Simulated scan of single mutants.
Amino acid sequence: MGSADGSSPQGILDRALGVLGCFTEDEPALTAAELSERTGLPASTMHRLIGALLRHGLMVRVPDHRYAVGPRLWELGELSPMSLRLRERAIPHLVRLYEATGENVHLAVLDGAEPERATVLYVGRITGRLSIPTISRAGGRGPLHATGVGRALLATRDEIWLERYLRVPRERETAHTITGEAELRAELERTRARGYASTREEMTLGNVSVAVALPQVDGLPPAAIGLVVHLNRADERRLSALVVQSAREIHAAIRQA
């Protein structure tokens, strides 16, 4: 049984994760007062939690009396199979794909225990000075229906999974985003038939994405690799062939590890 003040191991863990979950890409550093406001925890409890998180390297102090995610979290994250088995094995192939195209290259996985809440999680990204700007970043998330890697991953799901996923309304990211069930299902059929997914201005205006799902590997989440290019440079036939080949090479490298 947990104590009333939440000092049980489970209570402490829940509260610590709640604090760490306050940090976002837009707000990577927060004050103790801001953390208290976002979590609803009293100031005294927050200061004790911050002290414990600082001692374990899970948080660090930054200027202006603020706190940020600490290096211990990054260190632990690098022990994930997504890093050791997937991203590290994929990096040489991501680089070669970038060298062949000069475009943004993404490695992503399907994340979420429940289909209704599943998203794309970007675990690797190669970009350069001449690549078009994108909103994705390593460690960032995106919607399944509006991204190339997301649509490639959706096309690998079975009917039971898709039925649950499609129960939740999908946001329209741009005027071109496909959100309707019938139209999305038709896109998934086209993806399966041709062996790659494609989105045109569905996440960002002016951008086209071409992506391919990797064959499933035991111990790893479903993964996909994709390119994001400007509409004017979107030679889909050429780009899709390069992405398909890269996906095969990455899968082979993981299997040989």
Rank of each mutant, 00 (worst) to 15 (best):
L20K: 01
P42T: 10
R233H: 09
R157Q: 15
L54T: 02
P81G: 06
Y122W: 10
A241L: 13
Q216F: 05
T127R: 04
P81D: 04
D26Y: 08
P28R: 14
R192P: 13
T119I: 14
L144D: 09
R87W: 07
R117Y: 01
V244E: 14
P215V: 14
E25D: 08
V123Q: 13
A234Y: 00
E88V: 12
A138S: 13
V123F: 01
S240N: 03
L130H: 03
P42L: 11
V217S: 15
R237F: 02
G195L: 12
R238D: 05
T204N: 03
E34Q: 15
V19C: 07
E187Y: 08
R190G: 06
A197E: 05
S246P: 01
V212F: 05
A29V: 10
L41D: 07
R151T: 00
T45D: 03
E236W: 07
R237M: 06
T127S: 12
R194T: 07
R248N: 09
V212R: 12
Q245D: 15
H65E: 05
R125S: 02
L121F: 13
A223W: 06
E171R: 12
A211N: 11
R190Q: 09
G150Q: 03
L205W: 11
P222E: 06
R55S: 10
G128W: 05
E78P: 05
G140M: 00
R192E: 11
I132A: 13
G148V: 09
L110N: 00
R96M: 05
S80W: 07
R255F: 01
H145R: 06
E236S: 04
L184G: 09
T24V: 02
G139Q: 01
E78W: 03
N104W: 02
P71E: 14
T179Q: 00
D5N: 14
V217W: 14
R87T: 12
V95A: 07
P63V: 08
R185G: 10
M82C: 11
I135A: 14
G226N: 07
E99P: 01
P222G: 08
E187D: 14
G139A: 07
T177R: 04
R66C: 06
R48P: 00
A197C: 05
Q10W: 08
G21D: 01
E114S: 07
E114D: 10
I132E: 08
W74C: 03
S3C: 11
I91G: 02
G140L: 01
H145D: 08
G57C: 04
G219C: 05
A253I: 09
T127F: 08
P92H: 04
E103Y: 03
A182R: 15
G112Y: 04
D235S: 05
V244W: 00
D235W: 08
D64I: 00
E171F: 09
P92K: 04
R141W: 01
A100Y: 02
